[in-house]
């Protein structure tokens, strides 16, 4: 029986693709001034790279990439960055989000340019953290406890999570051990 978790091809291709997706996401964010793109799209791409890892390596196996507990803090950071830019403009003597009063010592035109960039980065943070957080909540795997897989709600979710949790077992050699045991069983039956 071919298990989803045993596919080396999917794992290798994912490891290969994730950095490129993230680079492209940053390109989309920072090139939003000159081409279609910006915070929302770039943040969605960043979240996509994390979710690809989640799907392929399982939620536990992908915690080293982007831990689940960072989802909501990333969202908060993004919104604080956005609103903080607005308040910083107020500190500089302007209205809320009036970028040409940001206290950075540039000409007003370039202050507005920089303000747009700061805001886009904030949006990207918020969107990325929120999307990853929603996925983690829906999958619903606790990342603590002795056997976290057993704690997920409902049999269907638990089963799906079980399938999408390859790396820990691969690392510990559990997959190999199980195969050996199955083969031995088959031999014994013969």
């Amino acid at each position: 029986m071919i298990h989803p978790k045993d596919s080396v091809i999917v794992e290798v291709v994912t490891r290969f693709m994730v950095p490129f997706i993230q680079i492209f996401a940053f390109y989309v964010i920072f090139h939003g001034h000159y081409s279609p793109g910006g915070g929302f799209q770039g943040g969605a791409l960043l979240a996509g790279s994390v979710l690809l890892q989640r799907v392929v390596f399982g939620k536990e196996g992908s915690q080293s990439g982007f831990a689940s507990r960072f989802g909501i803090p990333f969202g908060v950071t993004g919104i604080l960055l956005y609103a903080g830019t607005g308040f910083l403009a107020q500190v500089g003597g302007g209205n809320f989000l009036q970028y040409d009063h940001l206290p950075f010592g540039l000409s007003p035109v370039y202050l507005r340019n920089v303000g747009i960039l700061l805001v886009e980065i904030g949006v990207a943070f918020a969107v990325m953290g929120t999307l990853v957080s929603i996925y983690d909540d829906l999958v619903g795997l606790q990342t603590r406890g002795p056997d976290a897989r057993m704690h997920s709600a409902g049999p269907v979710v638990g089963k799906a999570v079980h399938f999408s949790d390859p790396l820990s077992e691969v690392r510990s050699g559990a997959v190999r051990a199980r195969r050996l045991a199955e083969e031995k069983e088959g031999r014994d039956a013969d």
Binding site: H33, S35, P36, G38, V109, Y110, N113, I116
Partner: peptide, 8 residues
Amino acid sequence: THTPNLVT
């Protein structure tokens, strides 16, 4: 703003 992308 010296930003060519008007949507942004």
